[in-house]
């Protein structure tokens, strides 16, 4: 099977999504959850650029990718600010202990 660069990129997207999704499902550290979200978004950006090349609409997908990068950065900043505040107020970053606070 002769894989083109686009196919290789899309396989890479699959691998990155799998790694990020697995980390999101298994990790309990709030900061690591944000890191796994970052991996998922990087996979999405790569997928957008590869899809734009495949369809011949590079500039449209590049514009979308820039929007995704901005949104992802804001999500990371807010997520880390939440993590810092939770650490200060509760004293832990463990999501299991946070969920047990609900009683």
């Amino acid at each position: 099977m002769n894989l083109s660069p686009i196919n290789i990129c899309l396989l890479g997207v699959t691998g990155l999504v799998a790694a990020g999704f697995y980390g999101l499902l298994t990790t309990r550290n709030l900061i690591k959850v944000v890191i796994m979200l970052q991996i998922l978004v990087k996979a999405a950006v790569l997928g957008l650029i590869a899809a734009g090349n495949a369809s011949g609409q590079q500039y449209l997908t590049q514009s979308m990718a820039i929007t995704v990068i901005v949104a992802d950065t804001i999500v990371a900043v807010i997520g880390m600010a939440f993590a810092i505040q939770i650490r200060r107020q509760v004293g832990t970053l463990d999501t299991n202990e946070l969920s047990s606070l609900r009683g």
């Binding site: 083109s4 660069p5 899309l10 090349n53 369809s55 011949g56 500039y59 449209l60």
Partner: peptide, 10 residues
């Protein structure tokens, strides 16, 4: 997807 790097663009 059977694609190569396309040059068609806006």
């Amino acid at each position: 997807i059977k694609a190569s790097i396309s040059t068609v663009s806006e």
